[in-house]
Design a protein around this nucleic acid. Structure first.
Length: 466
RNA sequence: GGCGGCAUAGCCAAGUGGUAAGGCGUGGGUCUGCAACACCCUUAUUCACCGGUUCGAAUCCGGUUGCCGCCUCCA
């Protein structure tokens, strides 16, 4: 079964066939960097990072581009409020973005282009649109002549007239048609601005993605992705701009992830329930947040609440414990297992299960259930009195292989204990041997206070950080 | 008004024609000196409701109800 992707353009799953065999050009709309990212921004970051990892796992050569919108109205406003200039604000939140998404296990894109580094290309792009009759200047602004683009509405599946019903009509509008959107915006005095054929100004909202995608990936992308809310108008407008200019298909597969609600409510500024990744990670293991995000299919809405996060943490811990227990056993027991072939076959079967889930439009929820199957299987194996190192190692390898695709890391740093704690551990072994359970329990309690949890097994006592 | 989505156990969540994955939680049991970890069993004769198609539907069709999103800045 081939990899299938749900394409927003056709509203159905399609076999994924990149334009150039073996190579994938992927563009993900990045944030406007006027604040720390919230968990709604974290979802696409995590989801498409996982898509990318899986494509790589499947053997594709992926070029992954994700932009920063580092100039726009919100940035200008924020800079004003903070008494800084726009580049300063952008720089700070770009750094914060890397810090936050890095903690969440997201790999760096092959490039993170910024709007302000592409002014020449943007101006040139608009100029060509103007030449072709798709753009017109009006009092220093430049607008896109929406009605001229035949396919307008094909992504959001709306006809232009349906869209028009909902369009806002502003008094004294400089546009020819209320559906026309801004390509270039004349600057007000004091605002950040660039020289252009239409006077000093800055780019409109949608043009930057068309330009940066083309600059870094060429005329046709394999995958263009972003949040569901970007479908209209952002992505619709990108298509109009790019396809008017190049007369080529802009993106072949469009992916859109669902929203996040907070405690069953839409996250919004007015409700005051914005959850910033920067804040939540102070009290939440980033891997738990990632696990939580991937435990629901990316196109479905997801509800964020303390209770659900706690559930996710418990689930993730089960997987971590399974790995931990495998490592302990690998370190202490002899290499003597039976039925090795059968176990190896079962392990391999789980890889297939996982791949089939991911092939089906990146069904990470189902893929995660394969990890749980793997945990159950390995835990069952650990009940055997005799184990084979080869099998234990294969279990660990598959855990690592699959969790790496999902971007989880089950930390395994070899830690050393202080000498006095080692001494207590040894004393406890003696005490238990002598059936001095009172002393043994005393030591266990003592270490628990130091956040070291002891577990007695048939293969000796193991410890972990609580 | 237009376009679209969702409704599966206490909670979360897969599942798009073949007789309900998985996780968390619950209850019982096994293991253990006691724990912990783990394992086994338990928790939906049923998938919002009503019709229809079919040998067979959570899955397809029609209708009803409820919730949500987009059409306006937004991941």
């Amino acid at each position: 079964m081939a990899l299938q992707i749900f394409n927003s353009l056709t509203r159905q799953k399609e076999p994924f066939v990149p334009l150039e065999e073996g190579k994938v050009k992927m563009y993900v709309c990045g944030p406007t960097v006027y604040n720390y990212i919230h968990i709604g921004n974290a979802r696409p970051a995590i989801v498409y990072d996982t898509v990318r990892r899986y494509l790589i796992y499947r053997g594709f050569d992926v070029t992954y581009i994700s932009n920063f919108t580092d100039v726009d109205d919100k940035l200008i406003r924020t800079a004003k409020e903070l008494g800084e200039d726009v580049p300063q604000v952008a720089e700070r939140f770009i750094n914060a973005y890397f810090e936050d998404t890095g903690a969440l296990g997201c790999l760096r894109a092959d490039a993170h282009p910024r709007v302000t580094d592409h002014m020449e290309e943007i101006i040139e792009f608009i100029r060509v649109l103007e030449d072709k009759g798709y753009a017109y200047e009006s009092e220093g602004d430049v607008y896109y002549r929406t009605r001229k683009f035949e396919g307008y509405g094909k992504l959001s599946h709306q006809s232009i007239d349906e869209l028009k019903v909902g369009a806002r009509i502003e008094a004294g509008d400089k546009k020819e048609d209320e559906l026309d959107f801004t390509l270039w915006k004349a600057a007000k005095p004091g605002e950040i601005q660039w020289e252009s054929p239409w006077g000093r100004g800055r780019p409109g909202w949608h043009i930057e993605c068309s330009v940066m995608a083309r600059t870094h990936l060429g005329d046709t992308l394999d995958i263009h992705a972003g949040g569901q809310d970007l479908t209209f108008p952002h992505h619709e407008n990108e298509i109009a701009q790019s396809e008017a200019l190049t007369e080529q298909t802009f993106a072949r597969y469009w992916m859109h992830n669902g929203y996040i609600n907070i405690e069953n409510e839409k996250m919004s500024k007015s409700l005051g329930n914005f959850v910033l990744v920067h804040d939540i990670l102070k009290q939440l293991d980033p891997m738990v947040l990632r696990f939580f995000m991937l435990s629901v299919h990316y196109r479905h809405p997801i509800n964020f609440s303390q209770e659900l996060v706690d559930d996710a943490a418990a689930g993730l811990e089960r997987l971590q414990t399974a790995c931990f227990n495998l490592r302990h056993r690998l370190g202490v027991s002899a290499d003597m297992g039976k039925d090795t072939e059968n176990w190896l076959k079962e392990i391999a079967g789980i890889r297939t299960e996982f791949t089939e889930a991911m092939d089906d439009d990146f069904n990470t929820a189902k893929a995660i259930s394969s990890l749980f199957d793997l945990a159950r299987l390995s835990n069952t194996y650990l009940k055997e009195e005799q184990t084979a190192s080869e099998v234990l190692q294969k279990f660990l390898d598959l855990f690592e292989e699959l969790s790496d695709v999902l971007g989880f890391s089950f930390g395994q740093e070899e830690e050393l204990l202080d000498a006095d704690i080692e001494a207590l551990l040894e004393e406890r072994v003696e005490a238990r041997k002598n059936r001095n359970f009172q002393r043994a329990d005393e030591i266990r309690d003592l270490l628990k206070e130091k956040n070291i949890v002891l577990e007695d097994t048939a293969q000796g006592t193991r410890w972990k950080r609580g």
